[in-house]
């Protein structure tokens, strides 16, 4: 019974919940809390899957009235499978962060060499680098020695306030270590078998982190410069034609910046509570009672 319930919960969390959660509008009002909720949904789905793997063999052998040795063997086999799943996740996480680190290190080396130092006298932040070229670019290279990179094209396109807004946005990504969040979701995505995985969490969390950085930047510079920068850069570097308007994160962000911020403490608290409940309740209600029974059959 435990296995069935956990299985239902796991499938709900990985197949049913992501769609509506990704389409909902309220996360725009509480982006940081929504990121936490996505993390809780993902982690709870993994824990449910592990719960199924652990509980199902033991419950089946018990239901068929097998003897104690068979139940014990089933438990040990289940533990091995669960260990493989955990290992697969950890290996994926290691791989993604290792590859990202290598790519960032190389990228940082090149932007440091190419930096047009003389053009950033007026840019006060010490980790800002300027690339020569008309293609308007603004991005950051996270890591211990992080960089914010702007191109000549971007500096020409934007006015002083807009440049400050873009830098404030990128510095927020760096300060809050958003790349760690993205890496964990990327690693999870890659570790899940092809049939079961969906890009919804990855894409949704990406947009939410942009919103968190937008909010921090608008607190510093106001919404108008940030929105102006977004508009001009988006116009200068068009996305692929076939992006649907509702999934175009630039448009979603611009619309959000057009109205005043309306954060809600109540909404934040509600979402955080939901995230915690998602992690704690299944454990308390389902796993603890099962553990109690299973330990009786434990051979050691």
């Amino acid at each position: 019974m435990t296995a069935l319930l956990l299985g239902a919960l796991g499938l709900t969390l990985s197949l049913v919940v992501p769609g509506p959660l990704a389409r909902a509008h309220w996360p725009g009002r509480a982006p940081a809390a929504a990121v936490l909720l996505w993390q809780a949904v993902t982690l709870a789905a993994v824990l449910s899957a592990l719960g199924v793997v652990l509980a199902a063999p033991e419950e089946l052998t018990r239901a068929f009235g097998s003897g104690r040795p068979v139940t014990a063997a089933a438990l040990i086999g289940a533990l091995a499978v669960a260990a493989v799943i955990v290992l697969r996740l950890l290996i994926s996480l290691y791989g993604v962060s290792k590859r990202s680190r290598a790519r960032r290190a190389r990228h940082r080396l090149l932007v440091d060499l190419l930096d047009r130092a003389e053009q950033r006298q007026e840019l006060d932040a010490g980790n800002v680098r300027v690339l020569q070229g008309n293609l308007p670019l603004a991005y950051c290279v996270p890591g211990r020695e992080a960089r914010v990179v702007l191109s000549d094209g971007a500096l020409r396109l934007l006015d002083r306030e807009e440049i400050d807004a873009v830098i404030a946005h990128e510095q927020t990504h760096l300060r809050h270590r958003h790349e760690v969040v993205m890496e964990s979701f990327t690693a999870f995505y890659r570790a899940v078998p092809r049939l079961l995985r969906s890009r919804a969490p990855l894409d949704a969390v990406h947009v939410l982190l942009e919103m968190v950085a937008d909010d921090a930047a608008r607190r510093r510079t106001g919404s108008a410069p940030l929105r102006g920068a977004l508009e001009r850069l988006a116009e200068a570097v068009p996305l692929a034609e076939d992006v649907a308007p509702e999934t175009d994160s630039r448009r979603v962000r611009m619309e959000r910046l057009a109205v005043p911020r309306n954060p809600s403490v109540a909404l934040d608290l509600l979402v955080v509570a939901a995230a915690l409940a998602l992690l704690v309740l299944p454990t308390v209600i389902l796993v603890v009672p099962w553990l109690d029974r299973a330990l009786d059959a434990w051979p050691l």
């Binding site: 990202s100 790519r103 070229g133 603004a138 990128e170 993205m182 990327t186 990855l202 990406h206």
Partner: peptide
């Protein structure tokens, strides 16, 4: 050439590389 390859690296995204750099406009 080096500037072009840096810009190329900065802007090209594959699922694998999503996490490496963060962009202002995608």
């Amino acid at each position: 050439e080096m500037t072009a390859s840096v810009m190329m690296d900065a802007l090209s995204g594959t699922p694998d590389q999503d996490a490496a750099l963060a962009h202002f406009v995608g």
